[in-house]
Design a binder for these strands. Structure first.
Lengths: 107, 107
DNA sequence: AAGAAGCGCAACTTTGGGGTTGCATATTGT
DNA sequence: ACAATATGCAACCCCAAAGTTGCGCTTCTT
């Protein structure tokens, strides 16, 4: 659960501005084909396709073929996992602060 | 805020298991010198040093020289920024779901 | 039936990340 | 004063990630 080995690939998928922009656009709930997503970007359709493949590999996006096009949609569950990791570290930090404070007052 | 351009470097710093492990160990609030942090890892001291430099570049860690050693400490503020980006996308997603539901019931 | 639209796959180039080794420097301890 | 400790800096590999181009296949459209 939220081990470093499990969380790192997730953050790696988020480590690109193009991919973050794609997730942002998909956050409105509407599945979109690649051409529609590539329209906003300055990149090639192929480049966008590759980025979507990366996001799909990380489980952040789902792909549903529909006729001749492929619709991509956001999968927010994985976003929650990334948040969980950050929360864990933050919680450990807060605990440490709490213990320190208690220890100081105890003296 | 939380533009893709601003958040991506932050996630990039989190995209490595070694670095995540370092953050985990520093989350107990105790600043540590490099040797202490390299002790747990299978890597060279240099490799750990480079990772700490990356974390420092992303603002996730603070460096305080103390005599001949350099103490590294966690800076949880930046963790919160990463969380904020994820929260934004999640919130937009929830809003979209809410609107969809409202629209359906309205019919 | 034929052209256009939308994708995927594969090959190729370039750039940057992760890691190591080697050396130079400053501090600590005896 | 000297040896050991703790770093930083720089040069150097290796490989994967990002992007492009080219080709071929399937599915609409007229």
């Amino acid at each position: 659960m939220s081990s470093a080995e499990a969380a790192a690939p997730l953050f790696a998928a988020l480590a690109d501005p193009t991919r973050l922009a794609l997730l942002r656009r998909l956050a409105d709930g509407e599945p979109r084909p690649i051409v529609a997503l590539a329209a906003g970007s300055a990149l090639t359709r192929q480049a966008v396709s590759k980025h979507l493949a990366v996001l799909r590999g990380a489980g952040l996006v789902a792909r549903r073929p529909s006729g001749r096009e492929a619709l991509y949609a956001l999968r927010p569950e994985r976003l929650a996992e990334a948040r969980a990791w950050l929360d864990e570290v933050a919680a450990q930090w807060d605990d440490a602060l709490g213990r320190l404070k208690a220890h100081v007052e105890e003296k």
